[in-house]
Design a protein around this nucleic acid. Structure first.
Length: 593
RNA sequence: GGCCCUGUAGUUCAAUGGAUAGAACGGAAGUUUCCUAAACUUUAAAUAUAGGUUCGAUUCCUAUCGGGGCUACCA
């Protein structure tokens, strides 16, 4: 890459001039800010070098500039502005680069060189509730991060861990037994996950009523919960489940089956898939056995009531429960087993858990427990902790009915895309199936971009009362730019693109070319930071840059054959990078829109 | 109480310790005889407060004031 070259040349120049050999990390080469693009493409920041040069910023920059010029034929000129040495590269350098790459299908993507295996866990739903907006962020992030890691040369295994067992599931089961009248998705016409979710909510409602009754008799919240018939019935059901009591297992399998059908359809509509699905019902026993080992080795301890704990007070954390008094396992127990199984299955070089930041503590504990029971691979676990999706008034609350359902949102996005498209009236010649496909791409593109452009670490706000934009910094803007380029390319009939190295380039052409040039670095950065937002923001910039170029210069009507060809090649190259970049976000591109 | 995250235009988001803090939406004003106007151009508008480190701080440190999360025999 050119930045590395310029860094090297700077180091050499500084050494020759001032006698100090600096490490590359002390050299700052950055893209010249847009105001000074006429003077340079890249800039060296000279302030940190003044201690060595013992000269003024301007003088230092000039000396280095001259030296670099001498040794670097790629550089055409340099200028010095306020302690910044701006280096301008020759147009022929950029043109050669374009010649060599504009036809590449996968520029900047590293599909083959598998150097390590990474297991990425995401989605991880509970089977007692349908998926909502929070899950959408999780799914899109996990899927995109997987793609990005793949594109940076890693072998990725996408896994989903379904929380299919536990007290929460038993609550839905109990509610269905008590008040369900044998209703099924088929009998009610409801999506399976929605139906089961309804019974979970119903349980909650009935439990509240019962508790309220008990409180009237003077019991505290805690006492009421302990005395509640519904709660104790649910707990009994969990024990029965762990004892593999047939009727309980049968009901459990049936209701979970409904939920899986529902989830599958949501995943499909989001365009998400997995390589492997784990079920906690298969891993919790392994978790229990790890706990047993921990007890024997004395790392864990048992309290009088038979519950099992780990003491993490030395690490600044608390005591943490690993097995309940009745012997049933908790979330942590299951996660221990899941981690162990996953290690056994893949021996990966890294485990990434895409899980919300409200579980930061849980993952600190998980890693510590694994480490304490002697799993040295615990340090390979990375919790990709992302922020919550909030509404303008705060957290989504199921109690207040403000939870944004995943299926509803997808449907709404697609129908908005349809409205917008019909209003613009550009696709009157489309077959209805083709049109549907476009609405889907655009609607989902808007949703995915909206979610992924935000830094994963940060909380984000979604306002349901105003729909997600289709103009400006959005997915459809990028899709539109792509379709626009495709339209030009179709008209151009790209048979004989040939251009020479000595074309005069306009500033906008160079900027656009350099932006394309930096795509591989962007992919690398996104992979290092596990951040699709890096890609998203880049794509927006690229699309914007292209649109400006498009308005300033005509392509097909350019009379100079060389320039016309150059601009076509640049357009083709841009469209490839937009397409590939969007693929990393899971966004599909329409050829026309 | 303890621990963790966070505070940038009216709103939603950007900015490896570097130049005059970028965009988008919304507001104001423009551009279609011309390759797709879901576009482009112009314009007003922001780093919570107080210190510190540094040649240089939105970025790092401390304090204060806001916002959120965790601290469950829920997952």
């Amino acid at each position: 890459m050119i930045q590395e070259l310029l860094t090297e040349k700077s180091i050499d120049a500084i050494f020759e001039l001032f006698g100090a050999k600096l490490p590359a990390k002390d050299i700052t080469i950055q893209r010249t800010i847009s105001n000074f693009r006429e003077q340079g493409d890249y800039s060296l920041v000279v302030f940190p070098l003044l201690k060595i040069s013992k000269k003024s910023p301007e003088e230092t920059a000039n000396l280095i500039g001259k030296k670099i010029m001498e040794s670097t034929p790629e550089i055409e000129s340099f200028s010095v502005i306020k302690g910044f040495l701006n280096l301008k590269l020759r147009a022929s350098f950029w043109i050669s680069f374009l010649m060599g790459n504009y036809q590449a299908q996968r520029f900047g993507l590293n599909d083959n060189q598998v150097d390590e295996t990474i297991v990425v866990e995401f989605s991880s739903p509970n089977t007692n509730k349908p998926l909502h907006l929070g899950h959408i962020r999780n799914n899109l992030l996990g899927f995109s991060v997987s793609k990005i890691l793949q594109a940076s040369g890693k072998k990725v295994v996408k896994v989903n861990l379904v929380n299919d067992r536990g007290i929460h599931i038993c609550k839905s089961m109990l509610a269905w037994k008590l008040w369900g009248n044998n209703s099924t998705p088929a009998s009610t016409g409801k999506k399976g996950d929605k139906l089961v979710g309804d019974y979970y909510v119903l349980f909650d409602k009935k439990l509240k009523e019962e508790i309220a009754g008990l409180k009237l008799k003077g019991l505290s919240e805690e006492e009421s919960l302990a005395k509640s018939t519904l709660m104790s019935e649910a707990r009994k059901l969990l024990v029965l489940w762990e004892q593999k009591e047939p009727a309980t297992r049968e009901l459990w399998a049936m209701m979970n089956g409904w939920v899986y059908d529902g989830f599958d359809s949501t995943y499909k509509s989001l365009g998400i898939d997995f390589d492997r699905i784990y079920y906690e019902s298969d891993t919790y026993l392994l978790g229990k056995s790890i706990v047993e080992q921990g007890l024997q080795s004395g790392v864990l301890f048992r309290k009088e009531d038979n519950s099992v704990w780990i003491d993490l007070t030395d690490e600044g954390l608390d005591e943490k429960l690993l097995l309940r008094a009745d012997g049933t396992s908790v979330y942590m127990t299951q996660d221990l087993g899941t981690a162990q199984l996953r290690y056994k299955d893949y021996h990966p070089d890294g485990f990434i858990y895409v899980v919300g930041n409200e579980q930061n503590y849980h993952f600190d504990v998980l890693k510590l427990v694994l480490k304490k029971v002697g799993k040295d691979w615990a340090e390979k676990i990375y919790h990709l902790s992302y922020g919550m999706v909030e509404l303008p008034e705060g957290k989504m609350k199921s109690r207040e009915g403000t939870v944004v359902d995943a299926d509803d949102l997808v449907e709404e996005m697609i129908s908005t895309a349809k409205e917008m498209t019909l209003e613009l009236g550009k696709i009157d010649d489309f077959e209805s199936e083709e049109a549907m496909e476009l609405y889907r791409k655009v609607g989902l593109g808007a949703l995915k971009y909206f979610i992924l452009k935000v830094d994963p670490k940060k909380n984000m706000v979604f306002n349901p009362s105003e729909s997600i934009d289709f103009n400006g910094n959005t997915g459809p803007f990028i899709q539109y730019t792509y379709a626009r380029i495709k339209s030009v390319l179709r008209k151009a009939e790209l048979k004989d693109i040939e251009f020479k190295r000595d074309i005069d380039l306009q500033q906008k052409e160079i900027s656009l070319l350099i932006l394309n040039y930096s795509f591989p670095q962007i992919v690398k950065q996104a992979a290092e930071e596990y951040s699709p937002s890096v890609i998203a923001n880049y794509l927006f910039e690229l699309a914007k840059e292209y649109n400006q170029f498009y308005h300033e210069h005509s392509i097909l009507k350019e009379e100079d054959e060389q320039k016309r060809s150059f601009r076509l090649a640049l357009s083709l190259f841009t469209s490839t990078n937009l397409l590939n970049g969007c693929e990393l976000l899971g966004i599909e591109m329409p050829e026309r829109m």
